[in-house]
Simulated scan of single mutants.
Amino acid sequence: MYAQAASIHEISHHPSSVLCRQSRTYGPFGMVATPMRFARNSEIYGEDEVAEYLYQVVSGAVRTYKIMEDGRRQIGAFYLPGDIFGFEAGDSHIASAEAVCETHLLMVKRSTLIVRASHESELTRQLWDAMALELRRFQEHLMLLISSAEQRVVAFLLDMSRRATKNAAIELPMSRQDVADYLGLTIETVSRTLTQLEQNGVIALPTSRRIELRNDKLPSGVAQNLG
């Protein structure tokens, strides 16, 4: 019942989203969920909108971002298949979320989840673990922004390798501009750093988005973080 109402609401606000009708789908934390499909670059939710749902990525990728006072876009996070997002400390979203490419999501209503968690200790633990992971990624991103350009790019590639492929070959769903806005760099700096890493044998660039890490060439102390 909740899922049907949520779907109609979302479609009316986001014409690029499509309700994927199925008899019953289970999403984050084993909750009955509403499957949705979002076209590339379409908005999932906007900054300051009421935070009604939690989302889990089934396929594709999602970016959250804010537009700064000087007009720059700062990407706060990327979410890949299996990731859960939409956690907020308050009742509204502090950033906007968009589909990086065609993306399939599962949505569950926050209020329903909170009611169930108040009676189910295992669900409470799962929520705690998911929020702790979100906090850890936020802290790691914050520390990354005070590193050198090379350290930022290498750390980003390692993170994508761990999360997306579990090996040293990465097919990035996001553009270099997205990467630059996430790392707090210009696109020129990202491209120049990738070229330098390729010339130094740290990575191979078969295509602009496919990157292969050479573990034995990674900067000292970094290779051990892979995997």
Rank of each mutant, 00 (worst) to 15 (best):
E171T: 05
A132S: 14
P173L: 07
S118D: 06
Q177V: 14
R125I: 01
K109D: 11
C101H: 02
C101K: 01
V115W: 03
D178W: 09
G90Q: 00
G184S: 08
E102T: 06
A169T: 15
T112M: 01
T112I: 00
R162Q: 07
T103I: 12
L105H: 11
L144F: 03
E88A: 15
I146M: 02
S161P: 00
E122N: 07
V179E: 11
E102W: 01
L105F: 10
F138I: 10
V179N: 12
G90P: 03
S118L: 06
Y182R: 13
R116L: 11
R110V: 13
Q126V: 02
L113T: 02
I170M: 06
C101A: 03
S92Q: 12
F138R: 14
L135G: 03
I170D: 06
H93F: 14
Q151T: 12
R110Y: 07
S175F: 09
E140A: 10
Q126D: 03
S175Q: 14
V108M: 05
E134S: 07
M143Q: 10
A180L: 04
E140P: 00
K109I: 05
K166T: 12
A130M: 06
A97N: 14
Q139P: 03
L133A: 15
A117D: 05
P173V: 06
T112S: 00
A168T: 04
E150H: 09
L127E: 00
V115P: 01
H93A: 07
L127N: 00
E98W: 05
Y182E: 08
M143V: 01
E122W: 03
R110G: 01
A99M: 12
L113M: 02
A168H: 06
L158S: 06
M160P: 04
D159Y: 05
A180H: 01
R116P: 02
L158H: 06
R136F: 11
L183H: 07
E171D: 09
H93C: 08
I170P: 07
H119K: 13
L183D: 10
R152L: 08
D91K: 12
V154F: 12
R116Y: 03
S118F: 01
